[in-house]
């Protein structure tokens, strides 16, 4: 399956330069791809129209650098700020409606399994907290109940950013926002815990402040989804605009929120099945290393 991403020779002279760059210097089919490719490789995400300094775009870059098999990965988005980025990523991706992303991914993953029974095809959902937890919660949970084999990533900015900062289910209690004129009256929905109880084999809650950690989590989540069962990652991507921060303050906001005792302190749940799968992977890697050195 090597060199699947290539340009037909007859078309090379008419292809745009950035497409040639993508094929020449992109990281498709690169076995050890990760955040370390930043700066030297062509990223699988191009210019996008998110706000200057948006932590969501940091997270998006880290994720696109970390997915293990981009040449066989299809992503599903939902309506929101991410729909301004999806058209610019270099893997097939679907936007259909607002909130049905896990239903789309279910059909997608199953149909790919029917069409390519002997091949790996990863499916990753990436949607905001409104889509994941509010309007799409039914489909989010049901896909986990059914143990659908894909990864769900929630970009949690604790509000509806794209429509102008309205209250969302993942917003903190007491936060004053549009549609929460006297402050949000109920607690931040505990989706990571719900995910664990709903059948996810791997759950992580985090921020995008450390690319190496994002890389590790994304790789684990995708591989576990492929081999064991559904996985869920909730990443804090604050909307600096709506919480009144400057464009350069997003990183600090993430760091503050992941401090011990804070709501985005890194937590991970790994089911026993997923753990033994990960152990197997680690052992295999170790054996490979030993074989390589001897």
């Amino acid at each position: 399956m090597a060199n699947r991403i290539q340009i037909n020779k007859e078309f090379v002279d008419i292809m745009p330069q950035d497409y040639l760059d993508l094929v020449e210097n992109g990281t498709f089919e690169s076995p050890n791809r990760g955040w370390k490719d930043f700066g030297t490789a062509t990223e699988l995400i191009a210019e996008h129209s998110l706000c200057a300094g948006c932590p969501e775009s940091i997270a998006f870059r880290h994720i696109m650098a970390s997915i293990p098999n981009p040449e066989d990965t299809v992503m599903v988005g939902s309506t929101g700020c991410t729909s301004l980025v999806f058209p610019m990523i270099a893997v097939h991706n679907i936007h259909s409606l607002f909130g049905n992303q896990n239903a789309i991914a279910t059909g997608l993953k199953r149909a790919l399994a029917v069409r390519f029974p002997d091949r790996v095809k990863d499916v990753i959902v990436l949607a905001g907290d409104g889509a994941t937890v509010d309007i799409g919660l039914d489909m989010t949970l049901q896909s986990w109940f059914r143990k659908e084999r894909f990864t769900t990533i929630c970009f949690d900015n604790e509000l509806y950013a794209n429509t102008g900062g309205q209250e969302s289910g993942l917003m903190q209690k007491g936060f004053l926002a549009k549609m929460a004129p006297v402050g949000k009256r109920f607690d931040k929905v505990r989706l990571p815990e719900i995910a664990r109880e709903s059948g996810c084999d791997y759950v992580a809650i985090m921020t995008a402040s450390k690319p190496s950690l994002v890389e590790k989590v994304i790789k684990q989540a995708v591989l576990i989804a492929r081999e064991v069962g559904p996985t869920y990652i909730q990443i804090y991507t604050p909307c600096i605009l709506e919480i009144g921060k400057q464009s350069m303050e997003g990183l600090q906001e993430m760091r503050t929120s992941e401090a011990p005792g804070e709501r985005f302190k890194f937590r991970e749940f790994i089911s026993p099945e997923a753990q033994s799968f990960l152990d197997g992977l680690a052992e295999k890697k170790k054996a490979e290393k030993i074989a390589a050195t001897t």
Binding site: F38, G39, T42, H48, G53, S57
Partner: peptide
């Protein structure tokens, strides 16, 4: 050091001159 390259929110905006 790759700090600026890592944390830039834009793709292929800060590059490393190898």
């Amino acid at each position: 050091c790759r700090l600026c390259i890592m944390y830039c929110p834009e793709a292929n905006c800060i590059q490393l001159d190898t």
